[in-house]
Design a protein around this nucleic acid. Sequence first.
DNA 1: GAAGATTGAAACCTCAATCTTT
DNA 2: AAAGATTGAGGTTTCAATCTTC
Lengths: 307, 307
Amino acid sequence: MDALFKEVDPLRQASRDTVRELGMLQEKFGDFGVSMAQCHSLIELGHRGVLTAGELAEILRLDKSTMSRVVAGLKRAGLIAIRDAARDKRKKPLMLTARGKKKLERIHQHSNRQVQDALALLNEDDRKTVVAGMAMYAKALARSRAQREFEVRRIEERDNPEVAGIIRRVMPEFGADGPGFAIHDPEVDFMSKAYAGKKAGYWVLAKNGTIVGGGGFAGLISGPKDVCELRKMYFLPEVRGAGMGRKLLEHVLVEAKKAGFKRCYLETLATMTRARALYEAAGFEKICEPMGATGHFGCDSWMIRRL
Amino acid sequence: MDALFKEVDPLRQASRDTVRELGMLQEKFGDFGVSMAQCHSLIELGHRGVLTAGELAEILRLDKSTMSRVVAGLKRAGLIAIRDAARDKRKKPLMLTARGKKKLERIHQHSNRQVQDALALLNEDDRKTVVAGMAMYAKALARSRAQREFEVRRIEERDNPEVAGIIRRVMPEFGADGPGFAIHDPEVDFMSKAYAGKKAGYWVLAKNGTIVGGGGFAGLISGPKDVCELRKMYFLPEVRGAGMGRKLLEHVLVEAKKAGFKRCYLETLATMTRARALYEAAGFEKICEPMGATGHFGCDSWMIRRL
DNA sequence: GAAGATTGAAACCTCAATCTTT
DNA sequence: AAAGATTGAGGTTTCAATCTTC
């Protein structure tokens, strides 16, 4: 495993202290007669209006059974009620009662005060750092967790239909379905075979057993021996923005380097803006002319980087 | 109540998200077979070596009864043991067993990985912001809580002996006990009476019912009508650094302004470095000559600020 | 009496199994 | 069968009362 960032230890330390100071190790929330989980549920209901128990469980990262009992407690206390008349009778949409709103108001006052008093000890710059740091940490933790649900693995024969389907779905999305595009390569239906050699490879991105993207490399046809081409890297729209493009790209490049290549070349389209931002962030640089003879004369953008 | 800083709401939001992502709303810590409180106890014992249940409760901000049962659970699991042979038989010093150390090691690995994975999504500057922000927040929360144990109130007659004791203890600490110092003012033994008028006031700082400091104002003798003097502001050494000097000073200045004064003057000593830093931070500016006729010719440093 | 720790009763959280509706 | 929610059994946390040692 890689060496840890030097920030890990002090961050964990400070995070533990924060959690303890905020009383998060305690079951109850102050003198409000509600548990920590109940308190968070009230806040979230106040924020979003109507939520089912399942949605709350997802948001608070709690087990649905826990949530069920949390909700039962809040209902017993008259703080929330089920909004009836839902189409799907399995769902029970929850919302705050007037009493619940009042209780929530007092909770907010108390917490606002606690946070306000702490922030009052800092100057404006430090306050900004605290907010920015906490926001970035929360977001990074969430993204990191989301990424854990993905798996990158080498393509297998049984994956071929799914992978072909993704290629044929994504490329037209960017207008890359006319002549001179990779969508017409004969290999599209037999990717596992086409990238089986030692000097090539293709990997799929899977989520819950379903393939949602892929990418690979192979030697650049009619190009210098030490140059490989990044090939057919595509993701379904629903998984874009999760940062998995970067992960898969890194994976492919590491493997390409292992295979002995010194540089990696790629062809893309100016309209694929997010992909090109990714390539640039990964160290690829624009070049003005295509290399080799890929036959993909539909592409209008060429990049290369050292491995 | 004052308006809230604009940072309060986003900070609370991000803090809630962080807490949820870290699984702090859950009872159990991962698949390690320990509760959240047990996990924190192990970490703290690993960090500090030997602790009693009471000390752990203080550190984790948990009730001693909770701690008792947390400790019982860890003992039952063979993760901690009581180090015997304590002089005071009421205390039971706890420490990790070999098994406990092994378990802690695995917990650290798991948490390090989680934090590392999240930080890997950020660049170095952002990682620094996250750590700095979290550290400052933890510290501010702790200081703010500590401050809540203090009380600032107007001096009463019964306080006079205690206040006199503080003045007579603190001033000699800084060599301010020779001739020309306020320690010899006749008012020292009757502060409540001396500062009873409408154009004066004295407040004490109390902690757990004991007075630990004080400060006040009165019109500057033989000075301009609109100038008051900050008088006899002293704190016991054990409460210095808690930020209460600033709080009391602010309180006194607000009251002085309410009494109609436009400026506040003070006399101090170059050796009282922390006090002078406080005055400067509060907007006082050094002047080269004394004002009025306080009779405290022992002082060598004079400051003033607009109210 | 106070400091340090434990315990009874009650509420809370969790896993796995179960129920209801689609 | 799957989605949404509940429940039984067992561990965790809490308040107040209690015990032990100084």
